[in-house]
Write a protein that binds this DNA or RNA. Structure first.
Ligand SMILES: [Zn+2]
Ligand SMILES: [Zn+2]
Ligand SMILES: [Zn+2]
Ligand SMILES: [Zn+2]
Lengths: 161, 161
DNA sequence: GTTAGACTTGTTATACCATAACAAAATCAG
DNA sequence: CTGATTTTGTTATGGTATAACAAGTCTAAC
């Protein structure tokens, strides 16, 4: 993930938080302290964060440390489209396209655990069509691909050399 | 799932078990009593079965009732390619194509919870290509679609009428 | 047939993931 | 201010999965 890792990640966080503020304001939703902080903590990296990892971070900062605290924040952020859940990892990831209606398709690196969200309308269309062939009306899609990201493939090559 | 529900499901079970025997024999793997019975129980329907549901059924039949019993059987069956895990449901499903190398792509009905496994080489190829565009080397795919199956769409239409 | 090694199962304990239910506090609209 | 609504606190519980080590079983070589 060279292009990804080289970036100034503060920009990612700032943009995500600004988008969140805007979206919540527009929809009359309240981005309370704990929700806002949860979102920031999730955005600390491009790696999915587990609910209890997040809970521990929140607790360190003085927020309530019981599970409902974190699951409520997560529910809110999920419903607002500000984060995604990675089903195959039981973990949560900030969404960089919260302002656009979309499905979350993910590339997950087995090595560094960074996750890249990608968009692929062609695949979505194919899936809808394929489902229809089976008489199936599609409602939701879980598309989670794992493997090696560019950086980690590079590393592997270096080690071999 | 009209075509699916109309079938003689004993054939599904018989075929699955016969395939399992053959595969294990060919690979020098032992399909022990608990593994074999676990596979049969998973195949009791085309709905995914949770680990603890399976454990309860095994316990009723006199098998050990501690979690490792069922997770070991599941690990074995997963590794042998005889079952799949549905990540979005934390549940396990018999595979009807265990003898062919393949990815498990699933159509999951929100209403009746039946799951249909489908194969779609086009989509696989597109995903590999898309991943490569991002410098990503694909290793595994989790493709789980939910919605309404043909049967349940029919029901819904009848109710409206 | 005995024995050593590998594999499988038994057992206990624990960690991790998620929600139910109800009480208290904060916020908002009128 | 006040009543309604939303959010948060608190306790308890349910669901999913694995670690660690002991005991039993199978297999193959001797
Ligand atoms: Zn970033
Ligand atoms: Zn997204
Ligand atoms: Zn069947
Ligand atoms: Zn399959």
């Amino acid at each position: 993930m060279s292009e990804e890792n080289a970036h100034n990640h503060n920009d990612c966080i700032d943009t995500a938080l600004a988008t969140a503020e805007t979206l919540c304001l527009a929809q009359g939703q309240r981005l309370t302290k704990v929700r806002r902080r949860a979102l920031e903590l999730i955005w600390e990296s491009h790696r999915p964060l587990g609910a209890y990892q997040l809970l521990a971070k929140l607790a360190e900062e003085g927020f309530n440390s019981a599970p409902p605290t974190v699951y409520r924040a997560l529910d809110f952020l999920l419903n607002a489209g500000l984060i995604h859940k990675v089903e195959s990892m039981n973990a949560y990831l900030g969404c960089a396209h919260a302002d656009k209606e979309h499905k979350g398709y993910f590339l997950i690196c087995d090595e560094c655990h960074n996750v890249m969200e990608f968009d692929y309308q062609d695949i979505h269309a194919s899936l809808v069509a394929k489902a229809a062939q089976h008489g199936f009306e599609l409602r939701s899609e879980t598309i989670e691909l794992t493997g090696l990201c560019a950086d980690c493939r590079g590393m592997a090559a270096e080690v071999r050399a």
